[in-house]
């Protein structure tokens, strides 16, 4: 039941406990209890709003930074990863397989700001062998949402 509730909430965080109860055939009190628990054990990390900032003309610059690092004894990649992801500029950080080790999504107000961050903060960290910066040029789809808009359904109003 928790999974079912989480799935619905992931799609729309504003659905009320009452509606969740109807949709899953559960008691409202039980839904509230499950949500509360999920919040406190950090199964639910937070509720947020997805915004298309382009619409309000807000300049945001994003870059995907490939980071190659030398793993350290006992802690592997984790210690260096932590030094990187603790920076608020790093919005997401992942350990990945392939030709580099960390993929870090960085956000800033300008290209300049991001390149400064990479050159002055990220690259000099001990154990970082090298970085490759890819600036994001166009956002097509974000977390399952196509930014150009959803397809309209083109249905006849009545079919018997």
């Amino acid at each position: 039941m928790l999974k079912e509730i989480l799935k619905i909430l992931e799609g729309d965080a504003r659905i009320t406990a009452e509606k969740l109860a109807t949709m899953t055939g559960t008691q409202v009190a039980e839904v509230k209890k499950l949500i509360k628990k999920a919040e406190s054990d950090r199964t639910i990390l937070k509720y947020k709003t997805m915004i298309n900032w382009d619409k309000v003309g807000d300049e945001q610059v994003w870059a995907l930074i490939e980071v190659k690092i030398t793993p350290q004894r006992d802690v592997g990649f984790d210690a260096i990863a932590e030094r990187i992801y603790r920076f608020p500029q790093a919005r997401s950080a992942y350990l990945v397989s392939g030709t580099y080790d960390l993929a870090v999504l960085v956000m800033g107000k300008s290209m300049h700001e991001i390149s400064d961050f990479v050159a002055q903060k990220l690259a000099p960290i001990e154990g970082v062998q090298g970085t490759v910066t890819h600036f994001l040029l166009k956002r097509f789809k974000e977390d399952g949402e196509i930014l150009a808009g959803r397809e309209e359904t083109k249905r006849q109003p009545v079919i018997l």
């Binding site: 397809e151 359904t153 249905r155 109003p157 009545v158 079919i159």
Partner: peptide, 22 residues
């Protein structure tokens, strides 16, 4: 009834007979 419906705007139709998914 259909003709009336066709002439109106802002109607929420529960009269459809097909999925709303493409």
């Amino acid at each position: 009834f259909f003709d009336l419906l066709a002439s109106m705007e802002g109607v929420i139709s529960l009269g459809v007979g097909e999925p709303d998914f493409a």
